[in-house]
Structures are given as C-alpha cells and as structure tokens.
Write a protein that binds this DNA or RNA. Structure first.
Length: 387
RNA sequence: GGGUAGAUUCCGGAGCGGUCAAACGGGGCAGACUGUAAAUCUGCUGGCUAUGCCUUCGAAGGUUCGAAUCCUUCUCUGCCCA
C-alpha cells in the first residue's frame, strides 16, 4: 500500500482540476478505500479514446485499492446532458438506453478491473421517486445556481431555448453522488458544474462533500473540437487495429503531442522524425486495446501500404447484374457496409478517387475488365481485392 | 392572455411568382502537393444505369399556365408586455 502522499501524487497526475488536493489528501489519510464515482450517460453505445482518459484515471484509483462506482445513467439519459450542446438533445427510448448500457460496460472493462467495480443504474432510485420527492429535491437548489452554467447562459444570451428538464440534469446527476456516498467524482472538465452540484447536494444532507477531479477533454481527430461520435472525429476503442492505427496517423503533429500525454502518459521525443514518432504512438495505443502482436501487424501493414500485394484486403465479388464501373464501385462500397448513393459514387469516380492497381478509372460508364487478385482502391481508406 | 418575429437542403444563412435542387459561409468528400500528416490550392456536396426525370424549402389546403416565394388553417419556437 502506498502512502497517502504517494497516492496523491499519482492520482493528481494529468488532471486538469482537482478540488482540492488538500481534501483528497485528508480522505486518503483515513486509510480506507475511497468510493470513486464516475457517471456515464449511455446515449451512444461506443466508447472512444475521449472516454478512455477518465477511465484510465479510474483504473489508477482501483490499482491503489479504491472502490470504483460506475453509475450508469439510464435515468439521466432520458433527460439528455445539455453539456456542450447548443440544442436540446432528442430523448432515447428505454430499449436503446439499456442496450447502450450493456455495450458500454463490456467496453469499459477493457480498461477497468471488473472485480473492483460497483455498477449501479441511477434509475434504481429515480424511478421510485414520487413527484413530491422531486419537488423537494429541486428545493435544494436555486434557479440562480443553475443559470450560472455556461451552456445555459450562452443559450439564453443567444435567445435559444432552454427547456426546464435540462436544468434538472445537473440536479439529478448531483443526487447520484448522495445516493452512492461518493468520496471522489471523476469527469471531464466539461462536467465541472455537474460535479459541483453533487458536492452541494451532499452538503445539504450533512455528508462530507466529494472531491472533484476533472480530466482534460481530448480533442478529436480534427484537433479542434472535442472527440465525439456525432462529430465523427473519434477513434473507437473496439475498432479494428488497422483502422485505429490509420486514424491516429491522420492527426496533426500538434495533436500527436497531446494524445501522447493524455492517452499513454508519455512525451514525444523531439529528436525523432514526426512520422516515426506518430507510428510509435499509434502502435502503443493499438497495443493497449488489442495486443502487442496486433500493433506490430498494424504497423507492418501501414509500412506496406504502397505494396499492394503485401497487405490483406477485404475480398470483393463482382456483382452479377452490373458490368459498368459505377455499378461495380457501388457494389464494392456496399460490400464494406458503407453504402453510398449512385450520385456519390459517380462523383468519386469522376474526381479520380477510384484506382485499379494504381490506374485511375474516371469514366462511370466504362466496363473495365477485372480479374481476380487486382486491387480496386475506392478512396483514401478503402480498398478491396477482386475475388 | 395580448403584441410581434420566425420555421429553407448536414449546420449557419440568402432567396423580385417563372431563368431554384435553391446564393454565400462552415462542415464533409475527392484531387494536387506532402511525411498516404497538417497547412495550402482546385473541384464536388438531394435522388435516379441521368444531355433528361423524380422528390425537397415546418404541415395541410388554396390562388395561378407556373409557388420556397401570394392566401387560409394548423403545428412549433424566440422576443416584448401581463
């Protein structure tokens, strides 16, 4: 068992904000396992590297002997977290939420230690609340407190709607902290407000308020906006190794430095050529979610990209009913489960994206003779081998 | 409850009754360049086996040879006043 001071050093590493170090130290000094809360919103099923920043931190707590409390916000998902949104979120159905929660756990345990994790659904207590209990809960908070929140303030300033149920979100999430008697709550910096509400609510119940620990938000592949599925700038943690590797290779040099620090806790070696440094980074990340062998394989594939024969590509059987290039390419996209409209495909062809063994094919109506083994390149990322 | 403004293609936002699949910007995609990166430049960005056809401008009706544009009703939202 590490000393409280040592633990504090490890736990605060890489954090964006801790409120406060002194409080955390005091709690650690009690020598009992802390209850560390992480609330998750099962609004989309797939976890990505952005989520992993916080999960990695939670695992550190586990490694130091603390108790992880993973709250699945099945109830809160019905509200929709207004964080970072300029618009109201559409609500999800009960079935979608439960299915998402299921996949979430499966994926989260690639990082967390299952045996040291307590999982609770916040619907357990909220679905039982009567309306008068809801009113009483609301009475613990003032409108002014809620309106301090940046998102709400901005929307009001811009004459955009803010629905009353959205204002409930921080209250509801904060109440979770009371229910699970959290000692520490983790979250992204965007969750600061919500976590603080949890502290306030705990105080109103005479509890020792939880320590707030915020982790930096990871930028998405574009390097500007936060990583999120809806912006399609994410790397999913269950993505195939090759896919993951390719996505990481597409980031800018600046972003590479940030990913290194936030995802694997290392600095990029400035003496190394950026390409090599990036390959190393990509391989390390792949290794973490797949295996060292998979990472090697992904690296090899990447290096062999020019040499088409050396790379494994999905096989593609020519369609029976179409002989024209347009029809063939469309079928190829469909076989990769990325169906595109005829107009999209026509555009790609005319713009020179389609290549057969390195030769551009740009006439959608032509009827190219394809023989088995030839490689049809569809766009930057996708190629298929003719079966 | 009263008054007023608005709802346009992924987003923002233009759109004299015909020349509107709808300006412009953002985003996205493709090409060139490169380190198969970023930045930059160029093109594309509703659908259709396609010099044309079909479906779009909150919804439903109507006026008209012709409607995103005019009229009616409805739905939704903002703002001001109570």
């Amino acid at each position: 068992m590490k000393s409280p001071a040592e633990q504090l050093e490890i736990l605060t590493r890489g954090t964006a904000k801790v409120l406060s170090d002194a409080e955390l130290l005091k709690k650690l000094e009690k020598g009992e396992p802390l209850r560390v809360k992480l609330g998750v919103d099962p609004t989309s099923p797939d976890l990505h590297l952005g989520h992993s920043v916080v999960l990695e931190k939670l695992r550190q707590f586990q490694e130091l002997g603390h108790q992880a409390v993973l709250i699945i916000g099945d109830f809160t998902a019905q509200i929709g977290d207004p964080t970072g949104r300029s618009k109201t979120r559409p609500p999800l159905s009960r079935e979608e939420i439960l299915a998402n929660a299921e996949t979430y756990q499966e994926q989260a345990f690639r990082i967390l230690d299952r045996d040291k994790t307590e999982i609770v659904y916040n619907g357990t207590w909220f679905n039982k609340m009567t309306f008068s209990e809801v009113i009483q809960l609301n009475a613990r908070v003032t409108m002014q407190q809620m309106l301090q929140r940046e998102d709400f303030k901005n929307r009001i300033a811009k004459d955009q709607e803010v629905r009353l149920h959205e204002i409930q979100y921080p209250i509801v999430q904060g109440w979770d902290s009371v229910e699970v008697r959290a000692d520490v709550e983790l979250g992204g910096t965007d969750q600061l407000f919500n976590i603080l509400v949890g502290r306030d609510l705990q105080k109103t119940k005479g509890m020792d308020p939880q320590v707030v620990m915020c982790l930096p938000i990871l930028e998405g592949l574009d390097g500007v906006q936060k990583m999120s599925k809806s912006l399609n700038n994410y790397v999913g943690i269950t993505e195939p190794a090759g896919e993951m590797f390719g996505k990481i290779m597409s980031i800018s040099d600046d972003l590479m430095a940030r990913y290194a620090v936030l995802l694997i806790g290392e600095e990029i070696d400035p003496s190394e050529h950026p390409v090599e440094a990036k390959k190393a980074l990509a391989a390390k990340i792949v290794a973490r979610y797949h295996s060292a062998e998979a990472a090697d394989q992904a690296l090899t594939n990447w290096n062999n990209r020019g040499k088409l024969d050396a790379v494994e590509l999905p096989e593609f059987s020519l369609p029976a009913d179409r002989k024209d290039l347009l029809g063939i390419v469309q079928a190829a996209f469909a076989s990769l489960e990325e169906p595109k409209s005829g107009s999209d495909v026509r555009r790609l062809i005319q713009q020179g994206s389609i290549q057969l063994d390195g030769e551009k094919l740009s006439d959608p109506k032509s009827e190219p003779a394809l023989s088995p083994g030839q490689v049809l390149k569809l766009n930057k990322k996708r190629s298929v081998r003719v079966a």
